Computed example of a mutant assay.
Amino acid sequence: IDNRTAKDKIKNYSGWLEKIAQSESNLLILGARGTGKSELANNYSALIHNLLGKFDFKFIQPKPDDFSVFYIGNKAIKPDYLGFQSIAGCSSAYEGLEVLNATIHARLEDNTIRMNSGLKCQDWSPQYWLIDEFQQLILQAESFEQKPREVSLSIKNAVSLGRSLKVYVLAIGQVPNVSQFPGWNKADFSQYVQIYLGDAIKVGIDYSIDKGEEIELKNDFEVFRNSDIKYYGLIREMGKKGYIAQLPNAREYFTESSHIIPDNPHHPTSSQELEVIQNKVLSPSHHITSQPITQSKSQVLECPNCGSFESVKNGKNRRKCKKCNKTFSE
Rank of each mutant, 00 (worst) to 15 (best):
N3F: 14
N3M: 12
R4H: 07
A6Q: 07
K11F: 12
N12P: 02
K19W: 00
A21M: 04
A21Y: 03
N26M: 01
I29M: 06
I29F: 01
G31H: 08
G36F: 00
L40Y: 13
N43R: 03
A46R: 15
I48L: 15
L51H: 07
D56R: 12
F57Y: 15
P62I: 12
D66G: 08
S68F: 03
S68A: 11
F70T: 04
I77E: 07
K78C: 05
K78P: 00
D80N: 11
L82K: 11
F84P: 02
A93W: 02
L97Y: 05
E98H: 09
E98A: 11
A102E: 05
H105G: 02
A106W: 05
A106K: 05
N116F: 01
G118K: 06
K120T: 02
Y128E: 04
F134A: 15
L137F: 04
L137S: 05
E145R: 08
Q146S: 09
R149T: 14
S152D: 03
S152N: 02
S154R: 10
L161Q: 13
L165D: 03
G173C: 10
V175Y: 14
S179T: 13
W184D: 06
N185G: 13
D188H: 04
F189R: 14
Q191G: 08
Y196C: 07
G198Y: 04
D199L: 12
A200C: 03
K202I: 11
V203S: 10
I205G: 08
Y207K: 12
S208V: 10
I209C: 07
G212E: 12
I215T: 11
F221A: 15
S227D: 03
K241P: 08
Q246H: 01
N249V: 09
N249F: 14
E252I: 02
Y253V: 09
T255K: 10
P262S: 05
N264T: 06
P265V: 14
E273K: 11
L274Y: 12
E275R: 15
Q278T: 12
N279K: 12
K280R: 14
K280L: 15
K280W: 09
V281L: 10
L282F: 03
S283C: 01
P284V: 13
I288C: 09
T289W: 09
T289F: 13
S290D: 09
Q291I: 10
S296L: 07
V300F: 00
V300K: 01
C303V: 13
N305Y: 14
S308A: 15
F309H: 08
E310L: 13
V312Q: 13
N314M: 08
R318Q: 06
R318K: 08
K320P: 00
N325M: 09
K326H: 02
T327L: 02
F328L: 10
E330G: 03
